[in-house]
Design a protein around this nucleic acid. Structure first.
Lengths: 179, 179
DNA sequence: TAACTATGAATGAAAG
DNA sequence: CTTTCATTCATAGTTA
């Protein structure tokens, strides 16, 4: 029952600043700034999933305002984000029983976009994608509060068979034949 | 979701005791029980390195008997365990060429597992066969050198206009209408 | 209680 | 698109 007061941790903030790499290093990986992440997330939430080369180019160009970025970073970001959303959903759907938690990447209504490169759109999209009435990021939090989102599952079903006491675990089959 | 911000993190310090989560708490990371760790370690030592989604499901399901667990925990556990074993070995091979340290995760002979179904249902037997003889030992491949190759900017397949680096930032339309 | 350690979680990058 | 790998961040638990 160790219960300390809530304390803070000061993040060391190593030599990397948000607008670039550590001084001298040339091969570090991209470290997106909060603003960049926000824009990308907004785009994703708006329905963008697989931006074309041209779109990537434009996004990257714009985001370079906030810090160093290359087109490939944008490309990878969307690829990863999409894949992980799927993977997450796949995994949740299996071991989650119905506790539906807030999906933090739920697509917005399509009116947000004029045309959306979304899975629901059979027709190939022209790369117009105009007019993005987002009023985001006028201010970014100077500090980040880490919230527990519990994205994966809440897991409600533990089969605590009441046969044992709390610590008296049943003998484990070390051969693991259950698999 | 991390980004290059410098700031503090506030530790929530929910009411958690050492043997697991308190009933009311739903935040916080997974805290495996000793039994869960043992099973996972045994699986690892038996050669399992990268369980498939299906295997992850089964493992997670079984381990839920010992306490709260989600499939993503199993996924991460194997990911981390494998990575850290690799990293440890790499470190040893670098700064300590001659003397081999004690490998504490040495794979067991395969006979450790497999046919022990004398008390289990045939269904379990099937699942056993399904899990083990598969692509478990995907280790042993040489580690890759991570070189900064600049493929993206050079490769013609994408033809990114490499315009990153330090440039005068254009006036940015903050409402993302650039697309 | 502040370092330190072990490890869960996340994600950029890339391979398959 | 899927899966894997490397690296880093975050934090529970431990130690000095």
């Amino acid at each position: 029952m160790e219960e300390g007061m809530s304390g803070f941790y000061i993040r060391a903030t190593g030599g990397r600043n948000s607008s670039g790499n550590v001084g001298g290093t040339k091969c570090g990986r991209w470290n997106p700034t909060a603003e960049q992440v926000k824009v990308l997330t907004d785009l994703f939430r708006s329905g963008l999933r697989t931006p074309s080369t041209d779109q990537i180019q434009k996004i990257s160009s714009q985001l370079s305002f906030y810090g160093k970025i290359e087109s490939k970073n944008v490309f990878y970001w969307f690829q990863n984000h999409k894949a992980r959303e799927r993977q997450k959903r796949r995994r949740v759907s299996v071991d989650d029983d119905g506790a539906l938690k807030e999906a933090d990447e739920k697509p917005l209504p399509a009116t947000y976009f004029t045309e959306i490169d979304q899975v629901t759109e059979p027709k190939r999209v022209t790369e117009t994608l105009q007019l993005f009435p987002l009023n985001s990021y006028d201010e970014l939090e100077p500090e980040k509060l880490r919230i527990c989102r519990n994205e994966w599952t809440e897991n409600t079903a533990y089969a605590w068979c009441g046969m044992e006491s709390e610590i008296g675990y049943p003998p484990l089959d070390l051969r693991l034949s259950f698999l």
